[in-house]
Design a protein around this nucleic acid. Structure first.
Length: 891
RNA sequence: GCGCGCUUAGCUCAGUGGUAGAGCACAUCCUUCACACGGAUGGGGUCGCAGGUUCGAACCCUGCAGCGCGCACCA
């Protein structure tokens, strides 16, 4: 052993061991290993992102699983990497470009802009990776992947080409979710419905054939009025049946539009008449198709009015135009009223502005292997934890909509489709494109450009980022077309750890892609983490400023402290309310362990082996048995992914059992006055228990576990505790019941005596003497320990002790113990104290008697429960008798 | 509107039928030679409400309320 410094300094220690593990190649996975495989792929963080608490929780869990699997003798691959995060990254670079150079991406052109993004990525891309390393993540960094790596890009293109050929990918003109800020289409999942306080405008359109007669309509979006091509009513609505088929006047620009009947219209809502704007509303678009209506687009891509026929609105921002349009209607006498109204508006997930339903040409995917993917979760081949998420998954799988996979961005995987130059215009505007067009030879879909590339133009769009992420498990393990040893050994992965918020974005899609392109499910278990909130229950967010920087926390409390603190409060199924106090506790825990080892070293720095346990005191056997119990309990908790419980078990064992009881009980054995045998038995027990405890702790607090294991010589030179196999046999190989009950009796008695001292205001005095009456025969050698534990000068055993009247006494598991106090005896005080105790016990007795007096209970309850109850009653009664005698003696 | 989850001590949470728990916070005491990032002792809960099942309910069932989260084309 080497001597420990006075204070534990996690920062330096953590860095030291992380470097040592890297040097020792502890994290690297060997596909040729004969050991059972265990694998996890990291949910790739955004390449330019920075670590937040969600990452900490998520990755600490993966690290725990990976480290535990190594201890269980498995060959572990934890595969790391980052995601190019199309919109987010491009937006960052565009903002920087705008702020620093006042330029847009179009000013630079596609190639130059992409160069800038790569520069940005190279500059900032490893920040989060460094942060994960700081946290202690044991990823196999030699296999780090990026979704825009050349090899990975090949996979993405390949998947596109295959699905296109299969007829599952097609291009079409559809109404999509358009982000007027990012200027791209989004998938349905990227739209966040948010309740908004808005206004419902009631207005009236004049009937063309009956001047002075009006049809009343309600809308939240008067600014799209110029795109109206009809007014729809419900065919079952008697109020409007007379209008169907007639024309009404659209106020501006002036036009006559038909009144049509469509079931979609809700009779109850508003006026019951709906203006139809097929270009700017999904439902209207569908109605438009059903009734063959014209589509008039009156908005620009960035959300401004595009309607030269209405010069006063033309060019205005959509929200300004809304007010202006309402004002115009009012001027024209067509606005009836405006009501306050709360409705759900879709917001762009990234740009945080209302999305605009917009007609545009996009690429869509019909999902492959839907049935296999749905079944895999339904039948338990893939196990969701908590299980209830399976229902959410199933619901989504049953209602799949085609996925809009094209994005009007530059940063990402460009669509691998080329159009023949001669046919370019026609193809660009074609209503749809699919395999049939490919077969005509007018478009090319493939991994490479056509040989005569000068005659072809590539589709400018890139793919949704998730279209690359959904390939993550197998595309990170193998290059396209390669027969990968890694894939064979480690796919499917064992566990996936991720947040439930990306169950659709990522998890569901990975399962489908796994079946389609790897021929199997991508993972066997999915553990959904808690969502971290602040103490008010709000989500962590930059704008609220309620998101603590994990790096700061690690500086303050150490990575181990952060990991442990967070894990200890992580509930199984629900959200987690973060409190820095828990991280502080984590740090305190590390300190407690460290100091226990320092204490050990005060008695020498030689490692001591265990001797013959038959001669060991009960405290030693007790703590070793508890360690065995801890190891067994942890095994069960790991099997059920009960991470918070594991932390709690570790904490309770070390703090309360090991330090609180065992170390206090054995302090005498470590003093100079102790015999060599006693000393060695104690040191041997300490070393055996601590060595195993540190191993069990290692997945949660890997750095301090390594530091102490090394410094205490619990691992051999050149060995790491992080990779050391868990012991196969328990420390105590025999029935320890007797020793444990003796130890427990001493601990319990000591607590009672401390209590007695407090009650008689002698808590601080260490010279008090206790007298044990009617002691068990084994007690004599343990009185010194009992004295130490309760802070007494001396404890005598005297079976015939005749206590002076009024001597304070306590009933303990080892017998009546008196606290003789010359000159301080107060008969009345002692009577009151004993009476109080009797009252308490009487209540318990009543409870027991009530139960046992109930015939139904005796008849119906299981016999062992009845027996238990009887024993309890006998126990209470015995105490009652004893206390009664004591009380009588005081009279 | 449909679905899911939560409601236990001041706070954060354990506890899936048999004597209500932990950590923190609080109060009092202790600078005792591992640790004040510590130790000792203590106060504090009719387990959201109302029914039901059961010998027995925090736990199972039903209803209700409050909070949160998904999904959904009501303009």
């Amino acid at each position: 052993m080497s001597e420990l410094a006075k204070a534990y300094e996690p920062q330096a220690v953590e860095a030291k061991w992380y470097a040592a593990w890297l040097d020792g190649k502890c994290f690297e996975a060997d596909p040729s290993s004969a050991k059972e495989a265990y694998s996890i792929v990291i949910p790739p963080p955004n390449v330019t992102g920075i670590l937040h608490l969600g990452h900490v929780l998520n990755n600490a869990l993966q690290d725990i699983l990976a480290r535990r699997a190594r201890q269980e003798g498995k060959e572990v691959l934890w595969l790391p990497g980052t995601d190019h995060a199309g919109i987010a990254t491009q937006a960052k670079v565009e903002r920087e470009l705008r702020e620093q150079e006042g330029k847009t991406r179009r000013d630079l052109g596609r190639d130059e802009f992409l160069k800038r993004v790569w520069d940005f990525k190279n500059k900032h891309g490893d920040i989060i990776i460094k942060q994960l390393k700081r946290l202690g993540c044991s990823c196999d960094w030699s296999r780090e992947r990026f979704t825009m790596d050349e090899a990975y890009t090949k996979w993405v293109s390949h998947v596109f080409v295959e699905l296109f050929k299969e007829g599952l990918i097609y291009r079409g003109k559809r109404i999509v979710n358009w982000c007027p800020v990012s200027l791209t289409a989004l998938s349905d999942e990227e739209v966040i419905m948010t309740p908004q306080r808005s206004k419902l405008y009631f207005m009236k359109y004049e009937l063309a054939d009956a001047p002075g007669e009006y049809l009343e309509i309600s809308t939240t979006r008067p600014e799209t009025l110029m795109g109206d091509v009809a007014v729809a009513v419900n065919p079952k609505d008697p109020r409007f049946s007379k209008y169907i088929g007639r024309m009404v006047k659209r106020p501006f620009p002036h036009a006559e539009i038909p009144v049509i009947a469509d079931d979609h219209v809700d009779i109850e809502f508003g006026t019951g008449a709906l203006k139809i704007t097929p270009a700017h509303d999904k439902a209207d678009f569908e109605i438009g198709i059903r009734h063959h209506l014209e589509i008039i687009d009156v908005l620009t891509p960035d959300g401004h009015v595009n309607c030269p026929d209405c010069p006063d609105l033309h060019g205005l921002d959509r929200f300004i135009a809304r007010k202006k349009a309402a004002a115009k209607l009012e001027e024209m006498g067509l606005l009836i009223k405006v009501e306050e109204y709360e409705n759900n508006v879709g917001f762009s997930e990234r740009a945080h502005v209302p999305i605009e339903p917009r007609i545009s040409m996009q690429w869509f995917l019909k999902y492959p292997c839907v049935k296999e993917a749905a079944d895999a979760v339904a039948n338990g081949d893939i196990q969701f934890r908590p299980e209830r998420w399976a229902k959410t998954y199933a619901h989504w799988m049953e209602n799949l909509q085609d996925w809009c996979i094209s994005r009007q961005l530059w940063w990402g995987h460009q669509i691998p489709v080329w159009y023949h130059k001669e046919k370019l215009d026609a193809l660009k505007n074609a209503e749809s494109l699919d395999m049939s067009d490919f077969e005509k030879g007018e478009i090319h879909v493939g991994l490479e450009a056509p040989a005569d590339s000068e005659n072809w133009v590539r589709d400018e769009d890139v793919m949704d980022t998730w279209f690359s992420s959904w390939l993550w498990p197998f595309a990170t393990m193998s290059d396209l077309g390669e027969d990968s040893a890694t894939l064979k050994k480690f796919h499917p992965t064992s566990d996936l750890v991720t947040g439930p918020d990306i169950i659709f974005f990522w998890v569901a899609r990975m399962i489908m892609a796994g079946f389609r392109f790897a021929g199997e499910l991508p993972f066997k278990n999915v553990f959904f983490t808690s969502i971290i909130r602040d103490l008010q229950g709000r989500k962590m967010s930059k704008s609220l400023g309620n998101s603590p920087d994990p790096i700061d926390l690690m500086e303050k409390y150490g990575a181990d402290g952060l990991r442990f603190g967070l894990l200890r409060i992580a509930p199984v199924g629900s959200d987690l309310r973060f409190d820095e106090v828990s991280v502080e506790e984590g740090r305190n825990f590390a300190n407690k362990i460290y100091n226990a080892c320092r204490f050990r070293q005060m008695a020498g720095t030689e490692l001591v082996e265990l001797g013959d346990l038959a001669n060991y005191p009960p405290y030693h056997i007790d703590i070793m048995a508890k360690l065995d119990e801890l190891a067994a309990n942890l095994k069960g908790s790991y099997a059920e992914y009960r991470f918070g419980e594991i932390a709690q078990l570790l904490y309770d064992f070390l703090w309360n059992e090991f330090c609180g009881k065992f170390l206090e009980a054995v302090k005498l054995d470590l003093r100079e006055t102790a015999t060599v045998e006693a000393r060695n038995a104690t040191l041997g027990t300490f070393d055996a228990v601590m060595a195993r405890f540190l191993q069990l702790l290692s997945p949660y607090m890997p750095h301090i576990a390594e530091e102490l294991s090394q410094r205490m010589s619990y691992v051999k030179e050149g060995e790491f505790v992080m990779t050391k196999a868990l012991p196969a046999t328990p420390l105590v190989g025999f029935d320890a019941t007797e020793a444990r009950s003796r130890a427990e009796a001493i601990y319990e008695s000591a607590a009672r005596l401390r209590n007695l001292k407090i009650e008689y205001n002698v808590a601080t005095r260490k010279d008090v003497r206790f007298v044990v009456k009617a002691a068990a025969s084994w007690l004599a050698p343990e009185t010194k320990v009992l004295a130490l534990l309760c802070g007494a000068g001396q404890i005598d055993i005297d079976a015939s002790y005749d206590a002076p009247k009024g001597t304070p006494v306590s009933l303990t598991p080892v017998g009546e113990i008196y606290l003789p106090m010359e000159g301080l005896i107060d008969v009345e005080a002692e009577r009151i104290r004993i009476s109080k105790e009797i009252e308490k016990i009487k209540i318990e007795v009543k409870k027991c008697e009530g139960k046992l007096g109930n015939a139904s209970f005796i008849d119906r309850a299981p016999p062992e429960v009845v027996e238990q109850e009887k024993a309890r009653l006998a126990d209470w009664n015995a105490k009652l008798v004893q206390l009664g005698e004591m009380l009588a003696a005081l009279a």
